[in-house]
Design a binder for these strands. Structure first.
Length: 281
DNA sequence: AAGCTCGCCAACCGCGTCTGA
DNA sequence: GTCAGACGCGGTTGGCGAGCT
C-alpha cells in the first residue's frame, strides 16, 4: 500500500493562504463542490497541494464554521467527549458541527489540556483505555468497544443538551439558522442519509461561502488601501479577522452549518480516518 | 522603550485506510 | 489478491502578537 506522494514538492506553495487563493478555491468549490481535491490545484491553477486545499476548505473557508470563543457548553462537551473518545478530534468535531477538528484540537491543546489533561492521563478517559487496549483486543471486541463508546458519548451529549440549551446553539440561533437543532440532532443520531433538504442546503452552503469570501475580499481590499498585506502571515491573519468579523457583523453562518462536515466525511468516496470514529459514530 | 518569553493558531507532515484498476 | 491513488486524521511546527521584565 504505497503511501501517496501527496504532492510533488516542486512548485508547490506553502505557508499561509492569501485572500486571492481563498477566492480561487472557493470559486472552484462553488462550481464543482468539495471533493476530488486532487483536481483542484490542476483546475484552479493554485500552486497548492491538494491536501492543503482540502485543509484550507474544511478548516477555514467552509461556511458555517465558528471560530474562537468556545462557550462553556462547548468546552464541557469537548472535555466530556475527549474523556470518552480520546484524541479523536474528528469524532469530537462531529458533535460540534460548527467547529473543526483542528480548532477543537488546538483549543484542547492550548486551553483544556492544562486544566483537564490529567483526566486522560489517569486512564479515566476512553482514549487511554482504547489506545492501550485495542492492540490486544480482537477486532470484534474493538468494534464492540467502539459502539459502547459511541453510545456513551451520545448519552453524555443528550445529558448535556437536556440540562440546558447549549450556548453555541443559542448563539447560532441569533443568526438565521433555521433548523439547527434538528440538524444537530441528526448528527447526533448519525443519520447519514443525504436528504433532499441537505442537497438544497449544499447549494445554500456555496452561496454563503461566496458571501463569506466576498466579505473577506472586501475586508482585504480595505486593508490594502492602507499598506498592503505584505507579510505572509499578516495577510492570512487579516483575512481571518475579516472572515470572523463578517460572521460577527452579519450572519454569514448558513443554516446548513451542521450538515456539511459529516456529509462530506461520510459521503467522500474512498479515504478514511485512522479509526472508524467520526463516520460511523 | 527595548528585549524576551510565552501562548495561540494556521498550516504542514506522516501515517492509516479505503477504493478502484 | 495486489498495488497505486486519493483522502482523512492526528501530531507537530513555525511565526506572529501579547504580555512581562
Amino acid at each position: 500500500m504505497g503511501r501517496s506522494p501527496c504532492c510533488d514538492k516542486i512548485g508547490v506553495k506553502k505557508g499561509p493562504w492569501t485572500p486571492e487563493e481563498d477566492i480561487i478555491l472557493v470559486t472552484y468549490i462553488q462550481q464543482h463542490g468539495p471533493g476530488n481535491w486532487r483536481a483542484v490545484p490542476a483546475h484552479t491553477g493554485l500552486r497548492r497541494c491538494s491536501k492543503s486545499c482540502r485543509l484550507r476548505w474544511t478548516n477555514y473557508l467552509r461556511p458555517g464554521i465558528r471560530r474562537g470563543n468556545f462557550s462553556d457548553k462547548e468546552e464541557k462537551l469537548i472535555i466530556h467527549l475527549q474523556a470518552l473518545l480520546g484524541n479523536r478530534w474528528a469524532a469530537i468535531a462531529s458533535y460540534l458541527p460548527e467547529r473543526t477538528d483542528n480548532d477543537i484540537k488546538n483549543y484542547w491543546n492550548t486551553h483544556l489540556k492544562k486544566k483537564f489533561g490529567k483526566v486522560g492521563e489517569d486512564g479515566v478517559g476512553a482514549g487511554a483505555v482504547s489506545s492501550d487496549s485495542h492492540q490486544s483486543m480482537s477486532k470484534g471486541q474493538w468494534e464492540r468497544r467502539l459502539q459502547t463508546d459511541i453510545h456513551m458519548a451520545k448519552q453524555a451529549l443528550r445529558e448535556a443538551l437536556s440540562m440546558e440549551t447549549p450556548a453555541f446553539m443559542t448563539e447560532v440561533g441569533k443568526q438565521p439558522s433555521s433548523s439547527h437543532s434538528g440538524e444537530f440532532n441528526s448528527v447526533l443520531t448519525r443519520s447519514q442519509t443525504m436528504s433532499s433538504s441537505s442537497a438544497a442546503a449544499a447549494a445554500a452552503t456555496y452561496a454563503s461561502s461566496a458571501e463569506n469570501i466576498s466579505r473577506l475580499l472586501q475586508g482585504w481590499m480595505r486593508n490594502t488601501e492602507t499598506p498592503a498585506p505584505s507579510g505572509r502571515v499578516s495577510t492570512t491573519r487579516s483575512s481571518s479577522e475579516s472572515t470572523q468579523l463578517s460572521s460577527n457583523n452579519t450572519p454569514v453562518t448558513p443554516p446548513v452549518a451542521a450538515a456539511l462536515p459529516d456529509d462530506n466525511r461520510s459521503k467522500r468516496p474512498g479515504g478514511s480516518g485512522r479509526s472508524p470514529f467520526g463516520r460511523e459514530v
